[in-house]
């Protein structure tokens, strides 16, 4: 799951929780790997890192009690609580006179719910793909600097026909099953081929898995107006863009399909018949 999405949703959630429950003086969420997922603005980053390190030091020794579920440190001026939800740790501090039942109700119900909702809203099922992000897909892709061979600009096909009328090329197979709705993002640059779109590596891996390892020759883009186009595909290079559900489309294709950045398109792979 992309941490930036979590960070955005959870930071807002933390602020809202503190608004409705001012007894919560600090809040922080970090991952199993120690990465900061979200934190309120009151805790300086250095302090956050030290808190996580201190907790990590305990967490790594909790195998003997069946791995950590919850730690509560009761102090004379307040209380620190850390609880685990899936692969996340949620840290809160409360003031001395806090209504603990109310705080517990909020922290033990709201945060797990929000985490679940954020996960469900994610555009692609990434749970199993997370471990594969470092792997290269086995689709045929060329270097960005290479001249386009099979797909030159003149080979772009634009059809103002609905999807059911689309006929795949004779030597390729358009797969019906795996299709993703993705958000259009601009793709530009001097060396960017005008016939190649970029899709998240995870989606390519997902297609590959669903198509039982068949080679992905290209993709078909379909707009909501029913316009379709076939073009080449490469994985998105910037890892920060992973998990956002975007497709980077060069200007030429955007013009052909009359689409703009931010619009949704349906994308499905074209498989090689070989």
């Amino acid at each position: 799951m992309d941490n930036e999405i979590y960070a955005f949703a959870l930071k807002n959630a933390l602020n809202e929780i503190q608004n409705i429950c001012p007894d919560i003086t600090n809040a922080l969420i970090f991952g199993e790997d120690g990465a900061i997922i979200a934190t309120d603005e009151k805790i300086p980053e250095k302090t956050t890192v030290r808190i996580i390190n201190a907790l990590d030091n305990i967490i790594e020794k909790t195998q003997t009690i069946g791995d950590l579920e919850k730690i509560t440190i009761e102090g004379s001026k307040g209380r620190m609580n850390t609880s685990r939800t899936n692969s996340f740790y949620f840290v809160t501090t409360t003031s001395q006179n806090a209504d603990l039942k109310y705080v517990d109700a909020i922290t033990s119900v709201m945060i797990p719910t929000i985490l679940k909702v954020v996960e469900n809203f994610h555009p692609a099922p990434l749970k199993n793909n997370l471990q594969k992000t470092q792997q290269k897909p086995t689709i045929s892709i060329e270097d960005e600097t290479d001249e386009p061979k099979e797909f030159c600009e003149s080979s772009l096909e634009v059809e103002n026909k609905p999807k059911e009328n689309f006929k795949p090329e004779t030597d390729s197979l358009l797969v019906e099953t795996p299709a993703n709705q993705l958000i259009v993002d601009n793709l530009g640059g001097l060396l960017v081929p005008s016939d190649t779109v970029r899709v998240e590596n995870q989606i390519l891996l997902q297609w590959e898995e669903q198509c039982e390892g068949k080679e992905i020759e290209g993709i078909q883009l379909e707009t909501f107006d029913g316009k379709t186009i076939q073009c080449k595909v490469k994985p998105i290079k910037d890892s920060k863009q992973e998990g956002k559900g975007i497709i980077q489309v060069p200007e030429k294709i955007r013009q052909e399909l009359e689409i703009k950045k931010g619009e949704l398109v349906k994308v499905r792979p074209i498989l090689s018949m070989e």
Binding site: N26, T47, R50, I51, A54, L55, N57, I58, K61, T62, T64, I65, G66, D67, L68, E69, K70, I71, T72, I73, E74, G75, S76, K77, G78, R79, M80, T93, Q96
Partner: peptide, 28 residues
């Protein structure tokens, strides 16, 4: 480790002197 972390947390999060620490795992 609990005592050490407790002392550090007390300073970092300004929760005062530690009264007690409770840690729960799946089994104990």
């Amino acid at each position: 480790s609990l005592f050490d972390a407790g002392e550090e947390m007390s300073t970092l999060l300004n929760i005062g002197d530690i009264k007690n620490i409770i840690i729960e795992g799946k089994d104990a």
